[in-house]
Each structure stands twice: as C-alpha cells, then as structure tokens.
Simulated scan of single mutants.
Amino acid sequence: MDEDTPVSEGDAGFGIGAVSRRLGIPAPTLRTWNLRYGLGPSRRSPGGHRRYGDADVRRLAEMKRLIATGLVPAEAARLALSLPDPPPPSPLKGGRRTSPPVPRKPGGRPAVAALARAATVLDGRAVSGLIEETLAAQGVVWTWEHLVLPAFDAVCRAQDETGTGIDAEHLLSGHLQAALHRLAGDVPPRGDERPVLLACAEEEQHSLPVHALAAALAEQGVQTRVLGARTPYAALASAMRRLGPAAVFVWSQRAATGDTAPLADLPHVRPACQVVIGGLGWRGRPPSGVVRVSTLPAAVACVMSTLI
C-alpha cells in the first residue's frame, strides 16, 4: 500500500497514540523510526490524517522484537520492512469467505526441511540455491537463526538416529561457508577504518559461527579479518598488535577449548579494543572487560556498539 493511500472511515487505521499504547513504544521513538527507517503510517483518513494500518503495526511489533534479541535498529528495520502485506480477502464462495494461502518467506519451515533434505541427498546445487535465496531475501542474521540452525539440528538428529550423515553435515557446512565468505568480502576497504578481528579459540575447529558474524557485520559495512579455526592465542595477540582492531571476537564451541584464562593475557592495544567471546564452550568467569554473548544478534549488536 502506498504511503498516501486513502481509506474509508470504517478502515481508518490507528493514530500514533493508539499504536504507542498497543505496542509499548514511546511516540517519539515511533516518529524516529518513521523518519530514519521508513517504518511509518501508510494510510490517510478521509480527513487527511496519517494513520497506521494493520501491516504497519505488525512491522513495528517485529522491529521491537528483533531489537530485543540484540539486533541493531538498522538491521531490525530492514527485516521488519521485508514482512509482506497480508493478502486481500478473496470473493465469497458458497456463502463463505475464503482467502488465498499466505506465501511463506524463504527460510520458513518448508525451506528448513528442503535444506536438510538436499544436504542429506548431497545435492550441493539445491543447498547453495536455498542458502543464497534466503540470504538475499532475509539477510545473514535471519538466515542463521531461522534456516541454518534448524537445518543443522535436523541433520544432526538424523545422524543420532541412523549413525550416518556426517557427509551431509560437511556438505552443508561447506556450501554455507562459501556463501558467507562471499558476503564478508563485499565490503570495500577504507583506510581510516579499524577492522574487527574474528577467530576461534585455540584448538577450536568449529568456525562457521565466526564466518556468520563476519558476513553479518559486512551487511553493516564493517571490515573484518577472519583468522579462522584453531587460532593460537600467540597468533591472535600478534594480529591485535599489528591491526589495532576496534573489536576482537573469539568463538569456543567445545568445553575443551573454552578456558577463559588465556584471554587475560591478550594485549591492551591503543586505541582500546573490546574483546567479545561467544559459544557454549567457555567456562569460568571472563576476565574483566571481556563481554560474553550467546547469540549471533547479540554478537552483532555488541560489536557494532564499539564502532559508534
């Protein structure tokens, strides 16, 4: 619906005060989201007043939810604006009103099943197609949370039940990493920008979350340097001294690699550098100044806050 679409008195939508009370979002914040991100009222009453329609309210609620998960506002707005309008009702048939089926977004449950099935039969073309389609439509964070993690869960559950399927997991990992790597390399270099340094903990071989974070930061225009799996802490320290990064992210998936003690020995570079850790492997209290996150949206938000 266009921004100035007129509506009838019976379908005039909601004023900003009503939306504020309904969603618990202050009216000044709603005005800011309208001006900055285009999440505003799309209707006009017969008297010419701007009004929020049902689709507008749904997008605002989605933006509020995404921000609460740790997503930065710009990315939350992009995902919220991608929500489709509800389909119009179809004519009455046989005395009953019916509606056409609502199209599913890439990355919904059918796509999760399709991706897991394609990986299981080792159909690399289909795996790449599904991943690329969803990344283009929904972005990295949404794809990771709603397509990739559920698909890996399905593949791993099949492994537990049958004792086979490691080949499917490896194929899925390979095609996903290739897609994420392409996205992460799309950011043009800027001479005055301090990069973000990403690495796995020493002896940690699971590096996909690091590549996902690099791609998600690339969507925000952030330069990254990925050291990858099994990065010795001495090598990480050396890279910190040479690059002077704005932030360092270290991933540990297994308890065997999650000792937090070596983090205290990382160098204190100038200007200051924020160290962020993620993954279930970390054990013990992180050293002072080290921030621990538990999700990809939280990692993106934490790193972006250091760049403001």
Rank of each mutant, 00 (worst) to 15 (best):
A216S: 07
E3R: 13
H211I: 07
L35I: 12
A212H: 02
C156L: 11
K93R: 12
V196M: 03
Q177G: 10
A126Q: 15
Q138Y: 12
A116G: 00
A12P: 08
S90L: 15
N34K: 12
R125A: 14
G40P: 01
V291G: 05
P73T: 08
R225Y: 12
S305P: 05
I67C: 09
D192K: 08
V155K: 00
R59W: 05
D56L: 10
V248H: 05
L266M: 05
M1V: 08
R182K: 09
A76Y: 01
T231L: 04
L208P: 07
T162A: 05
G17S: 09
G278F: 08
G24Q: 01
P103Y: 14
H170G: 01
G278W: 01
G24S: 03
T231S: 00
F249L: 14
A61M: 04
R292D: 03
A301R: 10
Q220F: 12
R125P: 08
S305E: 12
E75Q: 13
L176I: 02
E133Y: 08
R157S: 15
V275L: 11
I67T: 14
A179C: 12
A184I: 01
A298W: 11
G94I: 05
M240G: 02
T260K: 06
S305W: 13
T98Q: 07
A137Y: 08
P188T: 07
S305H: 09
D4F: 12
L208W: 02
L60I: 09
T295R: 05
G13D: 06
L243S: 11
A114F: 00
P262V: 02
R285P: 08
G185Y: 06
R283W: 12
T5C: 11
Q138L: 10
P100R: 07
S207C: 12
L71A: 14
A247N: 04
V187L: 04
S128Y: 05
L198C: 02
L307Y: 03
P91K: 03
C273F: 03
D265T: 15
S238Q: 15
A111V: 07
Q205D: 15
R22A: 15
S45W: 02
H211A: 11
S42C: 06
Q138A: 11
L172P: 00
G24R: 03
L213F: 02
L135K: 03
P245H: 09
K105S: 07
N34H: 13
E145Y: 04
L296G: 01
R97G: 09
L180M: 05
P189K: 04
E203C: 14
P103V: 04
L147T: 01
H211K: 07
P286Y: 10
S45A: 13
V155R: 00
R65T: 10
G284M: 01
P26W: 12
T257Y: 00
L115V: 00
G17K: 06
I16T: 07
P87A: 11
D192H: 13
L176G: 00
G48P: 03
A201H: 04
R109A: 14
W144F: 15
G108W: 07
R78D: 12
Q205G: 09
A27I: 02
A255P: 15
M304T: 10
R292L: 06
G15I: 01
V226I: 13
S238R: 13
Q177C: 11
A264W: 15
G174A: 15
A178D: 15
